[in-house]
Design a protein around this nucleic acid. Structure first.
Lengths: 233, 233
DNA sequence: AGTCAAATAATAATGTATTATTTTTCTGTT
DNA sequence: AACAGAAAAATAATACATTATTATTTGACT
């Protein structure tokens, strides 16, 4: 048997696929999701897709409209601002906690994930307008490593929820911001402060990091506003 | 047509029923959920029950064991402590925010829900060992009213998630604590401080309130510990 | 002729039932 | 205690009926 053939549920597979399509904005924010289309596109059964959609709805990545089906949750400036504020609260709390509890293994993981991330190009080689899946995954692992030593499962769960939400905004932001910011430096700053157990500096660096995406997107004015939220397809 | 016959999804109905059974501990923590039993018990189809379970799993009220089905999430002392810590963070943030933004309507709603709650007996008339559904609902509405003026949808969403989680612990706690605490006074203290716009006092009162349940349950030592988490059915 | 509204048709979501496959769990034997 | 086989339960696919929404047409009225 190969290294780790995770033979997970077909439903779980459908969920993962659908989720990653949404996070990468291959399914566009606000777009109607026709279940039968997804059934043929993903190759899973109707039930599997339905179950996945209902889970995604409870996580807030899609919205369910009773008797009308599902659509991808819209992204708006005001939601991004709210999300960022909330993320700052949760993520910094996790980070503080992790700095208190972290050991050598924690530090090592931060160093290694930070290095790996620094060596992966952001843009997808196939489609430079998109974020590469490898970078996304590496970025996720780095941020996870930073807070891995946090001893509160609930805080971590909330953090993960919000991190995923932000993913879609990153998908929109990253193509814009390569020349406007130094993401590598931001990551390095957080990592170094965390390992130096400088809580103040680490939290401040994290806050800045999270607010950069928001700032750039708001300045670029690429998002729809609240009012016309539904009409952009 | 009658006043408000909410003809919602059958799946949504199944979800609500299942959720309320779990929150009221009619389905005991740790218990295996046999899907076919629930299908006959609830009277909804297999698909509806499955979809509900998968949603509840993503909310953390049930845990999914691949190919083995679902079981009600266990309640443990350490989870309660973690949950309480996290709730204090979120709930106090919401409250602070609400106090900043609240208007007369907000104050009025706090007063009315607090009064209503004070006039409902905690114990279920039919089964005094259980919390009455009416009290539960009224309690939920009171806490919701307190934070209703908070302008962050994400904070409110997280708050609601954690509030529901705590419901099960309340189900276990309330029969114990009628003689050990004055819940009414706790609620009144929060309400009054909130309306007086005394952020410090309100937050402190809220924190105390949330920690009371934890304290009582820990002292009563009624919960299983981490290790034997799964074996109690 | 043009506009609005009701009726109809088409599409898609919702709900149920049946069946097959796979995995886990139980049971009896060695 | 280890194993094989049986039973049970979860998972999966599919077919089909029902219901709700959306689009289109028709027809009345201005």
């Amino acid at each position: 048997m190969p290294a780790k053939t995770k033979t997970q549920n077909l439903t779980a597979q459908a969920y993962e696929k659908l989720r990653s399509d949404i996070l990468a904005c291959r399914l566009r924010p606000g777009q109607k999701i026709k279940i039968s289309d997804q059934v043929s596109a993903l190759g899973y059964s109707l039930g599997a897709v339905r179950e996945s959609l209902s889970r995604l709805a409870s996580e807030g990545l899609v919205v369910a409209e009773p008797n009308k089906g599902y659509r991808v949750a819209s992204i708006t400036q005001s939601e991004l601002e709210d999300l960022t504020r909330t993320r700052v609260l949760i993520e910094c709390q996790c980070l503080e906690n992790a700095i208190q509890n972290g050991d050598l293994k924690w530090e090592t993981r931060i160093v290694s994930t930070e290095f790996e991330l620094s060596r992966i190009t952001v843009q997808d080689p196939a489609d430079p307008a998109r974020v590469s899946a490898a970078w996304s995954e590496s970025h996720r692992r780095f941020h996870e490593a930073l807070v891995a030593a946090c001893d509160s499962p609930w805080l971590l769960k909330l953090r993960e929820l919000l991190f995923a939400q932000s993913e879609r905004y990153r998908s929109v932001s990253v193509p814009l911001d390569t020349h406007k910011r130094d993401v590598l430096a931001e990551h390095k700053a957080i990592a170094q402060a965390a390992i130096a157990r400088d809580t103040q500096a680490a939290v401040q660096a994290m806050r800045d990091h999270l607010q950069q995406t928001t700032r750039i997107l708001v300045e670029a004015n690429v998002m729809e506003d609240e009012a016309k939220s539904g009409s952009a397809g």
